[in-house]
Simulated assay, not measured.
Amino acid sequence: MNPVEHVISTRQAEFERAFEAAKQSSTTFETKLNERLNATTEQKTTSIQTVTDAELNRAREVYEALINQADTTSTTVPNTTAETTATETKPTTESTNWNNYQIKPISAENEGKYSELIKTAAAKYDVPEALIKRVIQVESNFNPSVVSSAGATGLMQLMYGSNRTDPATNIDLGTKQLAGYIKKYDGDLKLALAAYNAGPGNVSKYGGVPPFKETQNYLTKIIE
């Protein structure tokens, strides 16, 4: 197989994986949307709500991102192997003034759990270990098998990607996503955490931290 055929074959496989993930996310989104609509219809007789605003919005954000990813992958095929060797840009949080934020500690029972994986991800994406630990504490209480009602999975509650229950994969991808949001919002940790919880679309829509009670409580659980 010549280099061009190899690249085309690789990209085709990537597209197929992205498309399959998009289909799965679409099913999750539609299911949760129907649940929410049904809950709204039945609100006169019950106060139980199975899906929160933040969960529904997070599912929608991920669904749209996967569709966009699939569209981009399907239309972009490099002409040479040189284009496939570009290194991934490492999100930087150097502009973040961590002194402005007090990250709350994790419970003593979780100290030491996944410490090496957390240390590796922290160094790789330039995110404090304490922040990664606290996010894991709030998201899953260090239980890699947790699955939310919206389909978020694992230690850092990822909405998409393969091997999400694998601690190493989950911590790496979760930290990468968090670092990307920190960079996107120029070091504003509140906005980065709000985007991680409710999706960047809602941060943009409301011009700051969304007025969702779940998201606001999420921030107070992680930083002071």
Rank of each mutant, 00 (worst) to 15 (best):
A59I: 02
Y125H: 01
V147F: 04
S107Q: 11
G174F: 03
N197T: 07
D71V: 12
R36N: 12
R36K: 06
P211C: 03
G201T: 08
K183Y: 12
Y63W: 12
F15V: 15
W98Q: 09
H6L: 15
K104A: 02
I48A: 12
T215G: 01
A13T: 14
A122W: 00
K221Q: 10
E139D: 11
L155M: 07
V77W: 07
A21R: 09
T85P: 05
N34A: 15
L131W: 09
E30Y: 10
Q216C: 02
L66D: 00
F212R: 01
P211W: 03
T215K: 03
K190S: 13
I222V: 04
G207A: 04
N97L: 04
T93W: 00
A152I: 08
P210K: 00
E14N: 13
N163Q: 14
L178F: 03
K32T: 13
N97R: 05
T41F: 04
G199I: 07
E30M: 14
G151P: 06
K23H: 14
H6S: 15
N57P: 02
S204F: 00
G201P: 02
T93I: 04
T72D: 05
L178H: 03
N34P: 01
E5S: 15
T46E: 04
F19H: 12
E139L: 10
K90D: 06
L178I: 13
T41I: 14
K113I: 07
V7Y: 13
T73F: 01
K213Q: 14
K23N: 15
G151K: 11
F212Y: 08
T41P: 05
F212K: 00
T87S: 10
T85C: 08
A108I: 09
K44G: 08
A108M: 03
P78G: 14
L117P: 00
I118K: 01
D186G: 08
L66Y: 01
G151F: 04
Y196Q: 11
G112I: 03
S95Y: 06
T175D: 09
A70S: 13
E83Q: 13
N143T: 07
P128D: 10
E14Q: 12
E5M: 15
N79F: 12
G207M: 04
A13F: 10
E139R: 06
E109K: 10
E129F: 03
S204V: 09
E139M: 12
S74H: 04
K23G: 10
N79T: 15
V51H: 01
R134C: 11
E20P: 00
M159V: 06
E64R: 15
T215Q: 07
K184M: 14
H6Q: 15
I222G: 02
P78L: 11
T96Q: 02
K133V: 10
A54K: 05
F15G: 10
D71H: 13
Q69P: 01
A198S: 09
N34E: 14
E88Q: 05
E116I: 02
M1W: 14
M159W: 09
D188C: 10
L33F: 09
K104N: 05
Q49C: 08
A150L: 06
S115F: 00
N141T: 12
